[in-house]
Amino acid sequence: MFEWMAPAFASLYKATGWNFIVFYERYEYDRFVDGAMLSIGLILLCLVLSIVIGVLGAWAQGSRSRAIRWGMGAYIQGFRNTPPVVQLLFFYFGFGAFVPQVDAGGYYEPLITAFGWAVISLGIFGGAFNVEIFRAGLEAVPRATVEGAESLGFSRLQIYAYVTLPLAFRFCLPALSNNLVSLAKTTSLAYVIAVPEMTYTLNQVWSDNVNVPEMMILLFLFYVVVVSLLSVFLGWLERRLALSGFG
């Protein structure tokens, strides 16, 4: 791939001054590829974590214990109504100090790296929205369906896992995909805690090589492509799972 395109971009630079150094210099190319892979990994992990939190949270919100319901409410409101960039800094710097770490001689090999904190912080942030989305989905499941399952002798957990959740998931998919797309975009904030994802990497490249406009265009295109692919996939899923007679 690199050998194939390097000459073209090198001559583009010579001819026009457009310096896409990440496509013709080995060191920068490796940085770029690493950054892209890390960004995609970060996005996927954040989405998965936020969905898991959403599913568990919506289950907890239906709990009979008032303390659990109140705790969920506080979590949702706390994360929805504060700036994600400050949350990220707070998690990384604030909580990072309380996590056990292994002394590696002068520094600590942390159990949770900056990447790990980004996944946790952004996953929890996105999860706060997902809980509400799943709850709305659960509420849309007809009461009669649940009663039917109860009369067949399903337990509360079984009903949640086999009946209400699969239905709720389909009901809330449009809202869910909106939130997941927005979360994917928010992952670029990991830049502030030095996670070498795409935004961070291209920033390094443009400050080392002073080719700001080119790298900015590349950054913009990267996210537009990745996020568009994600929303196309979610749109396909929506159509695939659509229930006739609902929505």
Binding site: S188, Y191, Y223, S228
Partner: peptide
């Protein structure tokens, strides 16, 4: 409209401040 909705705010911010 869709392209703008699909790009992170941070990236839009960079573009505007530097360009």
């Amino acid at each position: 409209n869709t392209s703008i909705r699909n790009s992170p705010w941070l990236v839009v911010l960079f573009i505007f401040l530097l360009a």
